[in-house]
Design a protein around this nucleic acid. Structure first.
Length: 423
RNA sequence: GGAGAAAUGGCAGAGUGGUCGAAUGCACCAGUCUUGAAAACUGGCGAGGGUCACACCUCCGGGGGUUCGAAUCCCUCUUUCUCCGCCA
C-alpha cells in the first residue's frame, strides 16, 4: 500500500501517474486526505485527554503517598468523565483509521512514468525480440499431443487423482522437470542469489504482507482447519522473510531464490481450463526476490531482466520482452517486464516470466525497513521475478525442439537430464 | 494428543501496582588515545503516531478486563521450551 505521508505531499502527481492505469484516482485520494486529516485531529484530541488523565493519576499517587487520602479520593471522582471521553474518541479514531486503510488497500501502486498507456496486453510495449524461430517439420504437434505420444505428461491421470489442472509428469517428462528446476536454481545461485527452501503454506499475516489478502482471497487454496493458505507463488513466503524487520544499510542488497510449487484456484479467470500446460492449478516455479536500496532498485530490475534473458538465450528459445502497459500492470507493481517465449507448434507467445519492481508498495505493508546513513528508518524496495516458471518453458521446449525422431534436449540441460532425446 | 514452564529493546537478562520506555552486560555508532588496529575512556544507541521543532500519546507475544494508575493482577488466544505419547 501507498504511504499516507507520500500521498499528502504528492497527491497531484500520484493522480496523474495513476491515470496511466486508466484509473481516476482523484476521489480516492481526496478520501485519503480527508480521512487522514480527521484521523489526526482525533489523535490529537485523544492524546491530550490521555495526558490529562495521566497527570491526574500521578497526582493521586502522590497524594496517597503523603497521606492526603481525602484529597485523592476527590480527584478520583474527576476521572470518570475523562475515561468516558477516552473511550468514545478511541472508538472514533479506530473507525477512522480503518476507513483510511480500507481505501489505501484499494489504491494500486503508482506506475513508473515510463509505463506505457494502454488498456490490455495488446498495448504492451515490446522492447526486445531475440532468438531464432524454429523451423518445424511437417506434422509438428502441440505439446499436449507430444506429451501423449511420448508418454511424459498425463493430464487424465492428474484429473483422476486431483482434478483438471493437476498434470502428472512421468518418466523423462518428470526428469526434465526436475532438470529444469535444478538448472534454474544453479543459474540463480551462480549470480549471487541465496537458495532457500520455503514453506508451501503460509499464515494469514503473510498473505496480508504481500497483498494476496484481503483482496485475492478467492485465488488461493485455503486450509480452513488450520487457517493456512497454499502459496500461489514463492513470492509470498520469500518476501515475508523480511516482514517486520529493520536491516542495516550494509545488509543491502539481498537476493534470494527458491523453488516451490505454486497453487492457484484460477477462480473465474478466462479460459480456466485451457488445454495442456498453459494454465494450471498446480505448477512449479523458481523465483528470485530482491531487497534493494531505493536508489538502486531500478538498476536491480535491469539486472534481473538481463539475467532471465541469459537463461532463455542458453535454452535457445525465441523470446521477447514486453514492458507492461498501465492496464496490464499488476496491482502492486510500479514497473513490470514480461518475458514471452514463442511456442512454435501453437504459434503463439507464452508468458514465462514476469519481473517487477514494487518500490515501497510491499515494504510499507511488510514494515521492511533499513537504517539509512542518517540513522533514520527508511522503507526498502522489493522486487521479484520468475526465473523461471516451468510449465510454459517445458511446453515450448517440447514444441520447439521436436523432430521427426523425437524431442531433443537443449544442450545446457543434458548434464541435468542425463539423456539428450525423448523418443 | 496429555502434563508442566515460559514470552521484556539487535542479543542476553533485571524488573511483581505509581518515581519504568524499562537496570545491567554484550553488540552497534561517534569521539579521545594510537602510525593503524585492539584495549581503555567519553558520549550516543528500540519503534510508531504527533509537531516547523518541542510538548504530548502509544507499544514489555496478540486481544480483552480490574484499577485513579498495569511490564507487574485477572481472563483468553498464540508461540516457544521440557517431559510423555504417536510418527516420516
Amino acid at each position: 500500500m501507498l504511504q499516507v505521508s507520500h500521498i499528502r505531499e504528492n497527491s497531484e502527481e500520484i493522480i496523474k501517474l495513476l491515470a496511466i492505469r486508466n484509473l481516476d484516482a482523484k476521489p480516492m485520494i481526496d478520501d485519503v486526505l480527508n480521512f487522514d486529516e480527521e484521523r489526526r485531529q482525533l489523535q490529537t484530541k485523544l492524546d491530550t485527554t490521555k495526558a490529562e488523565m495521566n497527570s491526574i493519576s500521578k497526582e493521586i499517587g502522590n497524594l496517597f503517598k503523603s497521606g492526603q487520602a481525602e484529597k485523592a479520593n476527590e480527584l478520583k471522582s474527576k476521572t470518570s468523565e475523562l475515561k468516558e471521553t477516552i473511550k468514545t474518541v478511541e472508538q472514533e479514531l479506530n473507525e477512522k483509521a480503518e476507513a483510511l486503510n480500507n481505501i489505501l488497500y484499494k489504491i494500486p501502486n503508482v506506475p513508473n512514468p515510463i509505463v506505457p498507456n494502454g488498456n490490455s496486453d495488446e498495448d504492451n510495449l515490446e522492447t526486445l525480440r531475440d532468438g531464432e524461430m524454429p523451423n518445424l517439420h511437417d506434422g509438428a504437434l502441440p505439446h499436449w499431443e507430444l506429451a501423449k505420444k511420448y508418454d511424459i505428461i498425463d493430464f487424465e491421470l492428474g484429473n483422476k487423482i486431483a482434478g483438471a489442472g493437476f498434470p502428472v509428469y512421468k518418466g523423462k517428462g518428470a526428469r526434465l522437470q526436475r532438470a529444469l528446476i535444478a538448472y534454474f536454481l544453479d543459474k540463480n545461485t551462480e549470480v549471487g542469489y541465496t537458495e532457500y527452501q520455503l514453506p508451501h503454506l503460509v499464515n494469514e499475516a503473510s498473505g496480508f504482507g504481500t497483498g494476496q489478502l484481503p483482496d485475492k482471497e478467492g485465488q488461493m487454496y485455503h486450509v480452513t482447519e488450520d487457517n493456512l493458505y497454499l502459496i500461489p507463488t514463492a513470492e509470498v513466503p520469500g518476501t515475508n522473510i523480511f516482514r517486520d524487520i529493520i536491516l542495516n544499510e550494509s545488509d543491502l542488497p539481498i537476493g534470494i531464490t527458491g523453488y516451490t510449487p505454486c497453487f492457484r484456484r484460477e477462480a473465474g479467470s478466462y479460459g480456466a481450463h485451457v488445454r495442456g500446460l498453459n494454465r494450471l492449478h498446480q505448477f512449479d516455479k523458481v523465483e528470485i526476490i530482491r531487497v534493494e536500496h531505493p536508489s538502486k532498485s531500478y538498476q536491480a530490475l535491469d539486472n534481473m531482466v538481463s539475467h532471465v534473458q541469459d537463461i532463455l538465450k542458453e535454452l535457445k528459445l525465441p523470446y521477447r520482452i514486453l514492458r507492461l502497459c498501465g492496464g496490464d500492470l499488476t496491482f502492486a507493481s510500479a514497473l513490470t517486464y514480461d518475458f514471452e517465449v514463442f511456442s512454435a507448434a501453437q504459434e503463439r507467445w507464452l508468458e514465462v516470466s514476469s519481473v517487477s519492481n514494487f518500490e515501497t508498495y510491499q515494504s510499507n505493508r511488510l514494515k521492511l525497513r533499513f537504517k539509512n546513513s542518517d540513522g533514520k528508518n527508511e522503507l526498502a524496495h522489493t522486487l521479484n521475478g520468475s526465473s523461471l516458471a516451468l510449465p510454459r518453458i517445458l511446453a515450448s521446449i517440447l514444441e520447439n525442439y521436436q523432430t521427426g525422431s523425437g524431442i531433443k534436449i537443449p544442450e545446457v540441460l543434458i548434464p541435468y537430464t542425463g539423456f539428450d532425446i525423448i523418443d
